[in-house]
């Protein structure tokens, strides 16, 4: 654990733009390369907001604190710059882009990473895409379908994992990737994340989740509990187990007190 943090979140507070109440109220979090962190918490605790603020969602404005990736101020960057710096967010509700195939979408995303005037080699791209799909045990025909258009919940989440596999981020934010998945789909998605972790041991993962069950498949190094916009407890995987047993009642009491 001697490494310097990949992601440093310090005293971060944020709200929906033009609203008056902060959803995040002083979040502190440091994730080092190769670590997997899970953030658990009840509905409305701010865990999804944290992921979106880090990714640069325009709905939110920060009201205090800082977010840095390898020491660079992320809050100053546009969402596309954050992506190119190595941030990837797997969406809780991935968006349909009618008429745009997954292959075309990913090609465009990779092309955007090149200098002006530099052209992505289509043959290389095709090879990369096929190799990535094989790694995730996906049918190559999947890449020809329009992005998330008419996809089942499971297909949408697999598409997120495929994008992550192609874009190879330094930091993967997984925003309730497990929600709405049956156990088989959950296994497939977890398997994909684990393959990518094995392949790139430096990749850091922040899992936002409601439930402990995904943590049986993707084992976290650190589990945080978020409550009312703050991280109120951090520890090892046992924290998740305890939460499953106890629920959030004691945090509620503590908050009231």
């Amino acid at each position: 654990m001697g490494k310097s943090p990949l992601l440093s979140v310090t005293g971060l507070s944020a709200r929906v733009a033009d609203e008056e109440i902060d959803i995040l109220r002083g979040v502190d979090l440091a994730i080092r390369p190769g670590e997997t962190h899970a953030i658990m918490g009840p509905n409305g605790s701010g865990k999804s907001t944290l992921a979106k603020v880090v990714a640069g969602h325009p709905t939110y404005e920060t009201t205090g604190g800082s977010v840095a990736l390898r020491g660079e101020d992320l809050l100053e960057m546009e969402p596309d710059e954050r992506s190119q710096a190595g941030v990837f967010m797997a969406f809780q509700y991935p968006i349909a882009i009618p008429g745009v195939s997954i292959a075309n979408f990913l090609r465009t995303a990779l092309q955007a990473r090149l200098e002006d005037g530099e052209e992505l080699d289509l043959f290389d791209f095709q090879e990369l895409l096929m190799e990535r799909m094989e790694l995730l045990e996906m049918d190559p025909a999947f890449a020809q379908r329009p992005v998330n258009d008419g996809f089942s919940g499971g297909e949408k989440k697999r598409n997120e994992i495929l994008q992550m596999a192609v874009l190879k981020p330094a930091l993967a934010l997984m925003d309730e990737t497990d929600s709405g998945l049956d156990i088989d789909a959950l296994r497939v998605v977890a398997h994909g994340v684990n393959r990518l972790r094995e392949e790139n041991p430096e990749m850091a993962v922040l899992l936002i989740t409601h439930y402990q069950r995904i943590l049986n498949h993707v084992i976290p190094d650190v589990v945080h509990v978020m409550y009312r916009g703050r991280i109120v407890e951090s520890g090892g995987p046992e924290v998740a187990m305890e939460l499953e047993a106890r629920g959030y009642e004691e945090y509620r009491k503590a908050h009231v007190a």
Binding site: A55, G56, H57, P58, E78, P79, D80, R82, S83, Q84, F88, M89, F91, P94, I95, A96, I97, P98, G99, V100, N104, F105, L106, T108, A109, L110, A112, R113, P146, Q163, L167
Partner: peptide
Amino acid sequence: EALFYLMSRGMSRERAERLVVTGFLGE
């Protein structure tokens, strides 16, 4: 939301708009 989704994959706003529009008309 769609523009943010595309931008979060590294595309500039302009590139994201082009992709959405050509996809929309491409049908």
